[in-house]
Simulated scan of single mutants.
Amino acid sequence: MASIALIGGTGNVGRRLLAEALRRGHTVTVVARTPVTDLGEGVAFVQGDISADPAALGAKLTGHDVLISAARFATVDADHVLAAVRAAKIPRLAVVGGAGSLEVAPGVRLIDAPEFPEAYKSEAVPGAAFLDQLRGVSDVQWTFLSPAAFFSPGERTGQFRLGGDAFLTDAAGKSAISYEDFAVALLDEVENPAHTGRRFSVVY
């Protein structure tokens, strides 16, 4: 079983990741800026703001096997997360990515398409920059999991497809994944690394 440090563990996706990790018997430390009391039995908590002092936060996380970042890209960038990982000497990093950086054609990202909603760019643009920065990192075993375009609460089915950099849809042209099945895919990667040093994606 792995010892997991989870940043953003109180958010929509983070809560599903926490539940999935506990379901599998992993030990989890949730990191948040404000105290949280409803994380469940056996879950450790560390208070801290990774964007304010990532090295200090990292010093509190020494001993974990993997750090999962489910933080928003608009407020937490790759420098913050990497500084915390390096300070903690955590060997592995898994990032909850976004769909905007997926390619709709070779070298053409979804975020660059004319129809990409302007309202989503405040999160999608820094998300793509985060991935670009990770691609230059060799001292941390990182992976970045991009969800489908429609990413929302749903069921845990365990039935989905994995992809790479390409934007994928189902037979009806829909690109969707639930938070719950995203968590399954990411915890599968934590347990059996198959995408170290690269991005992969998940879709129904």
Rank of each mutant, 00 (worst) to 15 (best):
G154E: 05
V76K: 11
G136F: 01
W142M: 01
D170I: 09
P193R: 13
L110D: 00
A94E: 07
F45E: 10
V140S: 10
V104T: 09
D139I: 02
D112Y: 06
Q159R: 14
A71Q: 07
V30W: 01
Y204E: 14
I68L: 15
F160A: 07
A149Y: 14
R199M: 13
F116T: 10
A74P: 09
L168Y: 02
D165M: 07
R23M: 01
P54A: 01
E103A: 09
A128F: 00
G97C: 04
S146Y: 05
E103H: 04
V108G: 05
V108M: 13
S201L: 03
Q133F: 00
D53R: 09
P106Y: 00
N12E: 13
G14L: 03
L187R: 09
A21M: 15
A171Y: 00
V76N: 08
R199Q: 15
E115I: 04
P193A: 13
R16Y: 00
V108I: 15
K60H: 10
V140D: 04
E41D: 14
V28Y: 01
E155H: 07
V28P: 11
V203P: 00
G100Q: 12
Q141K: 15
H80L: 01
F200D: 12
M1V: 14
E191W: 10
I111L: 14
Q133I: 00
A128Y: 00
L110M: 11
A119M: 10
S3H: 14
R33V: 04
G63Y: 08
G42I: 12
G98R: 10
R24M: 04
A172F: 07
L168P: 00
V28T: 08
K60E: 13
S3K: 15
S138F: 05
K60I: 05
P35H: 14
R156V: 01
P126H: 09
M1I: 09
D132L: 07
R109Y: 02
S178H: 11
G197P: 04
G158F: 05
L39W: 03
S122L: 12
L131H: 08
T62I: 13
E103M: 10
A183T: 11
G164W: 02
K174Y: 04
R15T: 10
G11Y: 05
R33E: 01
V95D: 02
E155T: 12
V137L: 06
R86T: 10
R72D: 06
A2T: 15
E118Q: 11
V104H: 08
Q47A: 11
P91K: 12
F73Y: 14
V36I: 13
R24Q: 11
P147Y: 12
L67E: 03
W142R: 03
I50D: 02
S101P: 01
T34M: 04
D165K: 14
F150M: 14
A166E: 14
A44L: 06
I177S: 12
S69Y: 01
G107K: 08
A149H: 06
L131Y: 14
P126D: 07
L61H: 08
R23A: 03
T196M: 09
L17P: 07
S122H: 15
P35I: 10
A166D: 12
W142G: 03
G25K: 09
Q159W: 00
L102R: 05
A59K: 10
F144S: 03
A19S: 13
E191R: 10
L110Y: 04
A70I: 08
